[in-house]
Amino acid sequence: MISVCSIDDIPEGEAFRFNADVPIAVFNTGDALYAIDDTCTHQDASLADGWVEDGCVECPLHAACFDLSTGMPSGPPAKKAVRTHQVIVSDRTVYVAINETPAELPVGEEIGVA
């Protein structure tokens, strides 16, 4: 469990990015907070920069949409899901429990190189 930020650091529609084994982003959809791996599974783009709507984030580079609750892309060009992580809020502090499965990284990226 990692203490990430204050809930006030993530306004609705925004995301907060932090570095764990790979960059992870916590999104506030207005209804809930979701944490997913920040790097698009297609190529090198930060999903925290993407547009959030209807429970999905749109990749800022080629617009693949990822479901924030499942990590699944809705269509091309991304094919692989991003990992999802559990978010817990306690005392206005946002905690993330990192999913232990290895991250899906786009080509040319290595773990530890952010």
Binding site: A45, S46, D49, G50, W51, E58, P60, L61
Partner: peptide, 10 residues
């Protein structure tokens, strides 16, 4: 400025 781009493109 990808975030603003996403908004404007919409």
């Amino acid at each position: 400025n990808p975030k603003q781009f996403g908004r404007l493109r919409r």
